[in-house]
Every structure is written in C-alpha cells, then in structure tokens.
Design a protein around this nucleic acid. Structure first.
Lengths: 109, 109
DNA sequence: TTGACATATCGCGATATGACGATATATTGA
DNA sequence: TCAATATATCGTCATATCGCGATATGTCAA
C-alpha cells in the first residue's frame, strides 16, 4: 500500500462541543458595535469609562455595562485611579482577532 | 517645523460607525456553536445540509436555517446537485478569522 | 403520477439581549 | 460632613434570537 491514511470516514476538523460553546460565547460578547469600538480603542491605549463612553457616544452607565461584560470574558482588566477607572486589554488574542476584523470591515472603506 | 501631525486631541483608531455595525452583524452571525462548527467544516471541504446537520447534531431544518443566515452574510454559497445542496465558503477572510478563533479556543484543549 | 428523500420556510413560544432611568457606591475636595 | 464627580448596579421593557413542529418546495426513481 502506498498511503492508507483515509480509512472509511471523511476527515473532520477537531474541536469538542464545549470549546465551540465557549468560543461562541466570547464572540457574542465581541459582536456589538460599541464593544468592538471599545476593544479597538483599548488596543491602542488605556482609557477610562467616561472616555470610552464619549468616544462611542453612549451614556456612562451603558459603557460601564459593556465593559463589565467584556471583563467577564477576560478581555479586559480594570484599575481604579482616584475617581476614575481605567480599562486595559488582558486577552492577548484580541489583537490578532481585531486585526482580522479590521482587515475585513474597517480598512478599505 | 519638523512634524506637526498631532494637534491637541489624542490619536484614536479610525473606523466609521457603519463599518462597526456591519462587522458586529457578521460577528453575531458567527457567534454560535453550531455555526462555528459549520464554518470550520466548510473550510475543510464541501458538505451538504444533511452532512453538516449530522456532524453538528441538529435536525436538518435547523441546520438549513443556520446556513441561510451565514449565506446572507456572504459567508457561503450553495449549489444544488440532485436532491442535495452543497455549501462552500465564499468569504475569503473566514479562514483567517477562524484560524484566530481556533488558536485561542479550539487548539490547546 | 406517486411516493420517498433532501432541503427550505413559516409560525410559535421560550429565553436572551440591549438600552434606559433610577439609584447605589466610591473618591475627592471644600 | 456635605456636595460633586466617576463609575457601577438594578428593575423594567422592547426587541431579537433560538429551536421546534408543521408544512412547503424541489428532485429523482419507479
């Protein structure tokens, strides 16, 4: 035999259902215009809730909720400095994923 | 003057709101365990509705609806062959995006 | 034409999400 | 302590999403 690497079933890509569920969860968190913008901003610097709210054009409490969601996914961490709270990127893969998204949607416009 | 490219406001990443809305829309479509799995499968080959339904463990009509959603985003195209309908990837960026997702969620498990 | 198979579509009910206003907490300075 | 600022949380409501069963469409073979 020359190469018997294909028994009887088609080769399928790996991945257990749980992993797909978790990936979908995180993607769902990313899949919001305001949150996408926040990710993009925080990949370029460190900002407060108020700054991100202003930039995205949403009220502060709404921005705070979005940031909390993303923090739960492990995207960001936050630290208080005086009255303000600064957010910054914690998930290293965000940069690559955002770069993919930018190259498809945000670049050649 | 040597380089006066920074007036008074912090530099912010570009991107008009519409583009973020569209990106979010497509990401939302991607952000589902079954649909993620279908994307992964179709990046490795050409499959029918029934095959994808079996693989994902969902009834045929549910699979068909997921595929229709993704077709609307331009992810896939389909062609009928006899009674069966084959789907295949149409959006070239899907491969890169899926690769990012795999490297974060589906690889080192 | 009829029946079986493969896929697509529709309407419904359950659940999730998003935005808002009101309120709560934390920090600073007067 | 009190007021002002910055952020967080809560309850509520409108809307969106998901999966299902039923049904419709398309295709082939007898």
């Amino acid at each position: 035999m020359v190469s018997k690497t294909k028994p009887k079933t088609k080769k399928k890509p790996a991945g257990n259902p749980q992993a797909f569920a978790q990936a979908a969860e995180c993607l769902k968190t990313l899949a919001h215009p305001v949150r996408l913008r926040m990710v993009q901003m925080l990949l370029h610097g460190r900002y407060t809730v108020g700054e991100l709210a202003d930039d995205a054009g949403v009220p502060d409490n709404v921005a705070s909720e979005h940031l909390r969601l993303m923090q739960r996914c492990g995207f960001f961490t936050s630290q208080r400095e005086g009255r303000k709270v600064y957010y910054q990127v914690a998930e290293p893969h965000l940069e690559q994923i955002m770069s993919c998204i930018e190259s498809r949607f945000l670049t050649h416009a």
